[in-house]
Computed example of a mutant assay.
Amino acid sequence: MNKSIIWVFLLGIVGLISGCMSGGSDLEQLYQANENTVIQYGKDKGLTLIKDPNSGVYYYKTVTNATGRGAAQTELVKMFYTYTKLDGTMLDSTTKTIPFGLSYLTYSTILNTPIALMKEGESGVFIFPQTSQLTEPTILTVKFVSTRNETEQIDEFVKTKYAGLEVVKTSTGLQYVITKSTATGDLVKSGQTITVSYTGKLLYPTKKRDSNGFYIYNETFDSGSISFVLGQGSMVAGFEEAVSKLRLGDKGTFVFPSSLGYGQSGRTDSSTGAYTIPPYSPMNFEIEVTAVK
């Protein structure tokens, strides 16, 4: 995918501004003034800024790793970042200990731009003359921690989460461990109404707001109790397959790829539009069967 197209689509700065202008408009002049401000900022700080021809962003790397791995589309990228104005006013940041997880190039975010210019292990400073959110220059300071495809994410998770346990893997890619077993009765069957208690998690912490409006980081996206008829497709395929491995009273922990979950679309909060499950995200469920009819 062409980076200039991505940049125009996601942030609407260089290409969008020039494409919408038919001469020396106020907006075009504002962008040029912002670009001059960025160039002067670099001179004042003694920085050797590189201008990326595709995005129009100015940047320099503080740590390089030329042989490092670059991110591929849909991979989970983990990073630390701060986002500020030129005067240092803080706009957003990660914690110092928990990296931010991003499904690279699968939805609109300003963070796609530095990742396109970096490799694992690198750090850099990226100065945007203008974005669709702000008409003044802003700075992203980024440390690129890692990039992993879905198979790698699941393998690393299972190796850590299920260490020393007997892991079962099915032909669909579901992996699981039965953590509590009744050892009697039959497995639940298609057509039965199953009631389960569950907790749904991603394989990494995500940034969200708690009930008081404060930012927190955790893996959980949903929990509760639900009844459904097994086999009617009312739940995602991975969840239904997971439940089918249990008896009444059984409890297990299950991990499965996004192809058995929400795939390339992910799932959004209907009130905010924010992703509760990003695109291409494997999921982990803890499930207990509490009733069968």
Rank of each mutant, 00 (worst) to 15 (best):
T184Q: 12
V167D: 09
T268S: 04
D222M: 09
F144W: 07
A163Y: 11
F144V: 08
S171A: 14
Y176S: 04
S244C: 01
Y198H: 04
T182F: 05
F228P: 02
V196M: 11
N218P: 01
Q264A: 15
N218L: 06
K161W: 09
T172E: 03
S223N: 15
G213F: 13
T138I: 01
R267S: 12
Q264W: 09
L134V: 07
L230V: 00
L187Y: 14
T170H: 08
S258E: 09
F144S: 10
L140P: 02
D155E: 12
G263E: 02
Q175P: 04
Q264M: 10
K161C: 11
L248R: 00
T195L: 05
A242W: 00
S132I: 10
F256Y: 15
S146T: 11
Y217T: 03
A237Q: 12
E219F: 07
S190E: 14
E152L: 11
T179M: 10
E152K: 14
S258N: 08
S211V: 13
G238L: 08
K207S: 13
V236K: 10
F254A: 09
E156M: 10
T179W: 09
G231T: 11
A183Y: 05
S244W: 00
N218R: 13
T206K: 13
G252V: 00
E156Q: 14
T141V: 05
S190Y: 10
Y217F: 15
P205S: 14
